[in-house]
Design a protein around this nucleic acid. Structure first.
Lengths: 230, 230
DNA sequence: TAATATAGTTGATTTATATCAACAATGCAA
DNA sequence: TTGCATTGTTGATATAAATCAACTATATTA
């Protein structure tokens, strides 16, 4: 009998930053066009290629945003957490999802009809600006990913991935990793075998511990050094 | 005595799509805050890291948008042509350029104070929406670049690059390449030596000709097949 | 025109990383 | 609990692509 449904957008503690730019009436409009659904770990929330008619916000849990590439090889673009708009550039281009979303834990997700957000972009210029900021920030993230994927080698990329998980997602130096080795590979651009080997190497160098699905960063400065130099 | 200065934004044939959403008065505001400068081939127009206080539009020529990576290795993100907004995500994040811009040919560029564009985003919701569309489209381009850089091998990436140059930039199967082998490498994620070898291979396979800096695509279907499968 | 710098080319070698294959551990279903 | 499927681990091997090094052609400048 879990009770983590959000009663309204007004009192949602995971509300998207940009909703702060709305009037209470506008936020109520969002709320009245909101529906909620639950997903179990592993379930797909939406698929790349399908029509994107809703913006999604997680109110509970974590999900992976990933692109399905050639012959079954995926790239995990980022980890979605509560408070983030999940919509993608397709919303303003071709109304298609250009990536897929799947639950990494049990997830509760709010769906808001995209036309509602678009109408608010028209009505409320602060909200429009906030949306621009949001997209811009994500775009920057992709720039960095592009540079690090093309120029860093495995050590640097894995270090970067772990630092990101530790600081941005779990906000702790020790966390249950959630991502399988396979997924860790899709997140950092390498095979699962390479992940295993590198984690071991990091362990042997006293940088981290890996116990039953958890990662504990022991030497963050060293890890960051590898992240930058690698 | 070249005369390709643009007299006003109103009659500019290379005007940004999104300016069509402005009233004439608003466009005049842009125009009165516009300044023009010329650059010679190779000159840098702005540098990654510097403050981004202006949006830029080319009225003549081509330029490369590139990120400066680790130890002098660059990635050319795209080729800028007249009609395109060049501003970057930094505008709505940290007021810094996150990539550099350099002239590939002789270039005439219009500079518009970014605060003017921002004020128009506030005043004109259609313009704001157009801006969102613009950023979204570019974001999609980066997604594709990420997938192709991480998953395709050299053949596929080079084919992709050449098809892009041919169809999007020069709109001809035969074109003066502009990009040096080094730059072609930065555009497709490989070294200049690999570019040379692959171009030769493509030539030997009857896919294209390379004569004094020109590329002539002879077998576009084959090239596209390599682009997709590679 | 000669002199020098830059860009292009080629082949030999090295290296990072994927792939393949076998096996161990873990979790889930019957 | 047993069996089966998934995930993790390890070592051996293959390969794509970078690096290195030498050389040639093409521009640019004196």
């Amino acid at each position: 009998m879990i009770k983590d449904n959000v009663s309204t957008c007004r009192n949602c503690p995971f509300s998207w930053q940009n909703f702060k730019n709305l009037t209470e009436e506008e936020l109520d409009l969002v709320n009245s066009n909101r529906s909620e659904a639950r997903f179990k770990h592993g379930e797909i929330i939406f698929k790349q290629g399908s029509p994107s008619s809703n913006a999604i916000f997680l109110s509970h849990g974590l999900a992976k945003i990933y692109m399905e590439g050639y012959d079954g090889k995926n790239i995990i673009l980022s980890i979605a957490a509560p408070g983030r708009l999940i919509a993608g550039p397709g919303v303003y281009v071709d109304n298609r999802h250009h990536y897929s979303l799947a639950a990494l834990t049990d997830v509760t997700a709010c769906f808001v009809d995209i036309s509602v957000l678009k109408s608010l972009v028209h009505k409320n210029s602060l909200f429009a600006e906030g949306y621009l900021k949001d997209i811009s920030g994500k775009s920057l993230g992709n720039f960095n990913k592009l540079v690090s994927f093309t120029q860093k080698k495995m050590h640097g990329r894995l270090a970067e991935g772990i630092v990101h998980l530790s600081e941005e997602i779990f906000e702790s130096s020790s966390f249950k990793c959630i991502l399988s080795r396979q997924e860790l590979g899709e997140f950092t651009g390498m095979t699962k075998e390479s992940i295993v080997r590198l984690l071991k190497e990091f362990h042997d160098d006293g940088i981290l511990n890996t116990d039953n699905g958890c990662i504990e960063v022991l030497d963050m400065p060293k890890l960051k050094k590898i992240m930058v130099s690698g």
